[in-house]
Nucleic acid binder design. Structure first.
Lengths: 139, 139
DNA sequence: GTTTATGCAAATTCTTTGCAATACT
DNA sequence: AGTATTGCAAAGAATTTGCATAAAC
């Protein structure tokens, strides 16, 4: 599990800039899914709002982060922990948990995704599961 | 399964207005999850954009509709098919399917939601499952 | 007649785009 | 040096709010 911003950027053949490093560092530190506005709150002194939008877009395109479903309407993102460029490793196919109390969304690695058998004619490409409730820190 | 807009509104103790009836009629007719902009496209000749926003808000608050997860970022809504005011029937706890081809999001009633056992300390309140792929009409 | 919903205007917030200046390799 | 990224300004969407008018009960 790579945890070094500079190395992650190199591995994905992206230029190493301070904004990209800081966004990565924030994801690693927070260990939870973050929205653009979460990042903006944390990094607004250092970087422009627009740069953060573009950084997220670049990271999405290089499979460095992925979208995490959220019931609030805000789009959240999380690091692809093992995926490398181009592998499309279905890394994001796991259970996400959103705490109603603290609002954090985290990955639950302990729980594996159930196999879903769809009716005839349906082709399953990706499964996303979001559990809402109270997390261990808040309960 | 109630399918009459006026009766649904009465059951939820809401005033019967033409906008509310038309929004409900559209949900019933389309049989799929709809976003604000979907509704706006269909009803813009008849009602103001703002009125549709407020109608959706009212319907959410009275548990007449619920949010449906979507991977595109657009918030979609669907009718709570059996729920009545105040029951919080966990009606939306089923599998949703989003077709990458036609973009429609529908409920898959044939597939039941797997039980998820979370790690200690986590309290499970609601489970949402979104499968992305190709629907039977598009494949 | 009283209360609630609607339409319009306008304010906010969210997201994207163009372009010159700057930083990276 | 050459190319990609950033910041700023501004455009364009999406969403919310205020208030007078209209509709529902």
């Amino acid at each position: 599990m790579v945890q070094n911003p500079t190395k992650i950027l190199k591995d994905h053949q992206l230029r190493i800039t301070s904004c990209r490093k800081e966004v990565l560092r924030t994801f690693i530190e927070k260990k939870s899914a973050l929205s653009h506005s979460d990042l903006e709150d944390i990094l607004k002194e250092a970087f422009d709002r627009v740069t953060i939008y573009r950084t997220l877009k670049t990271f999405l395109e290089t499979d460095l982060i992925h979208k995490v479903l959220d019931d609030s309407g805000a789009t959240k993102y999380a690091l692809c922990t093992h995926g490398h460029k181009g592998t499309h490793s279905h890394d994001h196919e796991h259970v996400h948990f959103k705490c109603e109390s603290c609002g954090r969304t985290i990955c639950i690695d302990e729980v594996s995704l159930p196999k879903i058998k769809l009716p005839d004619g349906y082709v399953n490409k990706e499964v996303n599961l979001l559990v809402t409730g109270i997390c261990s820190q808040c309960s």
